[in-house]
């Protein structure tokens, strides 16, 4: 237990729900430089066997990381971050887009005032990232 901040193994982070629309994918493509058409072109996405346009895995990773930075209040406290891209987030061509739900739980307290947080990231009831782990410096 980290007595100063009341954080222990099992402490849960506030759940975050993020909406992803096609416009968000276009904006991320420009910002990241990843212009793969499967992230904005329905025809190309279907041609390669996808159910439709999907979010960039790195966009999902960035959004999921916000649950941790919102919790610590300090983006610089996120020391390590890893994910496995398990299942694509399909983003329909409508106003609502896709919904991403991010839950986090402190899995271990580490030396040097750090903690490991494990994330569970789902969309349409399915896990989209696996082995999503963050090492943070605790406040």
């Amino acid at each position: 237990m980290n007595a100063d901040v009341g954080i222990d193994v099992g402490t849960e982070l506030p759940e975050q729900v993020v909406r992803i629309t096609r416009a968000d994918l276009v904006r991320y493509a420009g910002a990241s430089g990843d212009f793969n058409p499967i992230h904005w072109n329905e025809r190309v996405a279907r041609e390669v066997g996808l159910p439709g346009v999907i979010a960039h895995g790195m966009f999902t990773m960035a959004l999921a990381g916000r649950a941790v930075t919102a919790w610590t209040g300090d983006p610089a406290a996120l020391l390590e971050y890893q994910v496995r891209f398990g299942r694509p987030v399909v983003v329909p061509d409508d106003e609502d887009g896709a919904e991403l739900t991010v839950r986090g739980r402190v899995a271990a307290l580490l030396d040097g005032g750090r903690a490991r947080v494990d994330l569970t990231v789902t969309s349409a009831g399915e896990k989209v990232l696996s082995l999503a782990r963050v090492v943070v410096r605790l406040p």
Binding site: L63, T69, A76
Partner: peptide
């Protein structure tokens, strides 16, 4: 630009 695209609106960015 990147921070805005991922909704990371913390002022340090």
């Amino acid at each position: 630009e990147f921070a805005t695209a991922v909704g990371a609106l913390d002022p340090v960015h």
